[in-house]
Amino acid sequence: MSSLDTLGYCKRLEAVGVPRAQAEVHAQVLAEVMSQVATKDDLKELKAWVELYVKEQIQGLKADILKWLVTISIAQISLMIAAMRYFAH
Rank of each mutant, 00 (worst) to 15 (best):
M34R: 11
D41Q: 13
M80G: 11
L4T: 04
G8V: 01
V25A: 13
D42W: 00
V25Y: 06
L13Y: 00
T71M: 09
W49A: 14
K40A: 14
L43A: 10
K47F: 02
K67N: 14
C10N: 05
A83F: 03
L43M: 10
D42Q: 03
A27H: 00
A15W: 01
Q28P: 02
V70E: 11
L13K: 02
K67I: 07
E24V: 05
E45Y: 04
A63Q: 13
M84Q: 12
H26D: 15
Q28S: 10
E56R: 09
A63E: 12
L66E: 15
A82C: 08
T6K: 04
I74C: 06
K11N: 12
E56C: 05
V29R: 08
D5H: 02
S78F: 04
A63R: 09
V18L: 04
K62A: 09
E51K: 02
A82N: 08
M1F: 08
R20C: 05
E14W: 00
T71P: 01
M1E: 14
T71R: 13
E51W: 00
L69P: 02
L69S: 15
V18C: 03
V29H: 05
L4V: 08
F87I: 11
V50L: 08
W49N: 13
V18R: 01
D42E: 05
Q76W: 07
V29C: 06
V29I: 13
L79N: 15
M34V: 06
V33Q: 08
I58S: 04
W49Y: 09
C10E: 12
A82F: 03
I74T: 09
C10P: 01
I77C: 05
L46R: 12
V70D: 09
K47M: 06
V70N: 10
L66D: 15
K44F: 05
R85Y: 09
A75I: 07
S78P: 01
V37Q: 08
E45L: 11
S3G: 12
Q28A: 10
I58T: 08
W49R: 15
W68N: 15
E51M: 03
E56G: 11
H89V: 14
I72K: 11
A38W: 05
D64A: 14
V25G: 13
Q76N: 15
C10I: 04
I77T: 13
I77M: 06
V70K: 10
E56K: 08
R20L: 09
E51P: 00
A83V: 07
A38L: 12
A21G: 10
V70T: 14
K62P: 00
V16W: 00
K47R: 13
Q28I: 03
L46T: 12
S78H: 04
Q76L: 15
A88G: 10
L46N: 11
V33M: 06
K11P: 01
T6V: 07
S2V: 13
A88Q: 10
Y53K: 12
L4K: 00
I74D: 06
L13N: 01
A75F: 03
I65A: 15
I74H: 03
W68P: 03
L66G: 09
K47H: 08
I81M: 06
L66C: 09
